[in-house]
Design a protein around this nucleic acid. Structure first.
Length: 478
RNA sequence: UCCCCAGUAGCUCAGUUGGUUAGAGCGGCGGACUGUUAAUCCGUAGGUCGUAGGUUCAAGUCCUACCUGGGGAGCCA
């Protein structure tokens, strides 16, 4: 007999059918005559209640039906006398895999996220993490759907790279050399010509530069792949291994870039609202449980309300210079409430400043543009004022920068000049500069941190909870 | 990397100004009862108090270092 998934059974609710389900036991409640087993197969948040008659199934079987055990059940779907619509009256129960109740770490009770993080290999078996996994999948699919509908091509940029000029952070080195006794040159430095690739290599911190190569041939491309940063960042917003989406478009200026970024984010959020209702509703309830312990002024908007709010409202667009003005004239600045005073033009904004703009002043997502050139990367296009660059950061409530992007500098001479000033080795970047030598064209792009998006959409507060196996400093389990 | 907080039973926590034998709830196990909803009731087992030093007659409690986790900052996505 063919197994049916619980999602499909609960959707159709075809009472009277005999069906076979496989899944894992969440809880079991024992009565004199019947046992109630909540079975979950991960296809949907909800469990199917299995009713097992004690007189049919002996203690030999029922004692093995413990939280975490895998079961296969054949039974008749009937209307339930309890709070759910339907339930399965079991005719056959097979315990496929037992779970020793003395040792199985997941209990039929609420666990802390910190504890579940330590048993990340089992945390999918909870409502919260299975819901996150399903939402994450939906978002992956929506990313590809959005770009496909818009005529973008997906490009796989390299994961191992010999370019150490991506300029986005510290890199993890990739080597097969004997670390205890590496080959050395005469001056004592390590001789990478003996290494696997014959040169020093690392894990990528961004596919952008390679993406630009493709965009200047295919017009519109996007990458969606893993990126690695060896920064010693210990926060709830950073991972050492994360997934990034980087579209790159030829003949797009900064305004086109902003339009795309805003449309993209709204598309993803709307997709989640339409396709992940059950999971989002659960995640919302979970979040509100957590919020109960927080002081009133630190509570956030209800999850679905918040997502609708972002999807429906236009993002505010303003220049870095205007933002500085707003901040300097703000109440907290005048009352000295900012921990870091708002310095004038030329300094980067602190998290508290970004949060003030987004959460207090505008109460909407904000796109900041035209940053001072000296605090941004070498490839960003210099504006006419010669002081600022055509950069854009999309700031979201709570998580801060969700997107960072720019119009790229397409003028060869100016780019080379900037690279020299920023000590980027020109000889290693010839392949990149070729795009500016031959048929250079205005182009733009941005990077979206996928896990930051998932954090926002699921209402989770720690980024380590929205990726299956988080990698962070001093933490690489599994 | 910096600042703050925490680490006690499988989980979540309490443990007084340092003072006999370290507690509770949940979970597990045993039983009672029951078409139950994280069922309910009774009973029971379960602890090198993060690690290493130190102070003291005496340390879960005080001090130091380290480790791990959390919150915030920086770096960024």
């Amino acid at each position: 007999m063919k197994r049916q998934e619980i999602k499909e059974i609960l959707q159709s609710e075809t009472v009277g059918d005999t069906v076979k389900v496989n899944g894992w036991v969440r809880t079991k409640r024992e009565s004199k005559n019947v046992n109630f087993i909540n079975l979950n197969d991960g296809t949907v948040l909800d469990n199917l209640q299995i009713v097992a008659d004690v007189n049919i199934f002996g203690n030999d079987i029922l004692r093995k039906v413990n939280t975490g055990a895998a079961l296969s059940v054949i039974g008749e779907l009937v209307e339930s006398q309890g709070q759910q619509n339907v339930e399965l009256i079991a005719k056959e129960i097979e315990v496929i895999g037992e779970a020793d109740p003395d040792k199985y770490p997941l209990q039929p009770k609420r666990h802390s996220l910190e504890f579940l993080r330590e048993i990340a290999h089992l945390r999918y078996r909870t409502n919260t993490f299975s819901a996150i996994a399903r939402v994450r999948h939906s978002m992956i699919f929506a990313v590809h759907k959005f770009f496909t509908e818009k005529g973008f091509f997906n490009i796989h940029t390299p994961i191992i790279t010999s370019s150490d000029a991506e300029g986005a952070g510290e890199m993890f080195q990739v080597s097969t050399l004997d670390m205890g006794n590496p080959p050395r040159k005469e001056d004592g430095s390590i001789d990478y010509s003996e290494d696997f690739f014959g040169k020093k290599t690392s894990l990528t911190v961004s596919g952008q530069l390679e993406g630009e190569l493709a965009a200047l041939a295919l017009s519109k491309i996007y990458t969606f792949g893993p990126t690695f940063r060896a920064e010693n960042s210990n926060t709830s917003r950073h991972l050492a291994e994360f997934w990034m989406i980087e579209p790159e478009m030829a003949f797009y200026d900064l305004n086109d870039n902003m339009d795309l970024a805003e449309e993209f984010l709204k598309y993803l959020i709307n997709y989640a609202l339409e396709n992940c209702q059950t999971d989002l509703k659960f995640l919302s309830q979970r979040q509100q449980q957590e919020e109960k312990n927080k002081p009133q002024d630190q509570r956030t908007m209800e999850l679905i309300e918040k997502l609708n709010f972002v999807a429906e409202n236009e993002f505010v667009r303003l220049t870095y210079t205007d933002a500085i003005n707003i901040l300097q004239n703000s109440k907290p600045a005048k009352k000295g409430k900012f921990k870091y005073p708002v310095e004038g033009f030329g300094t980067d904004l602190q998290s508290e400043h970004e949060r003030y703009l987004v959460e207090k002043h505008f109460k909407k997502p904000v796109i900041l543009i035209d940053y001072p050139a000296n605090i941004k990367a070498f490839y960003m296009k210099v504006n006419e004022d010669n002081k600022t660059v055509a950069a854009m950061d999309v700031l979201f409530p709570q998580i801060g920068e969700i997107i960072g992007g720019s119009q790229r500098e397409e003028r060869y001479d100016i780019l080379v000049e900037k690279m020299k000033a920023m000590n980027i080795p020109l000889e290693d970047m010839n392949w990149y500069l070729d795009t500016r030598r031959y048929g250079s064209a205005p182009h733009s792009g941005f990077g979206l941190g996928f896990e930051r998006l998932i954090t926002f959409v699921t209402g989770m507060t720690n980024i380590r909870d929205v990726i299956p196996f988080p990698r962070a400093p001093k933490n690489c389990e599994f």
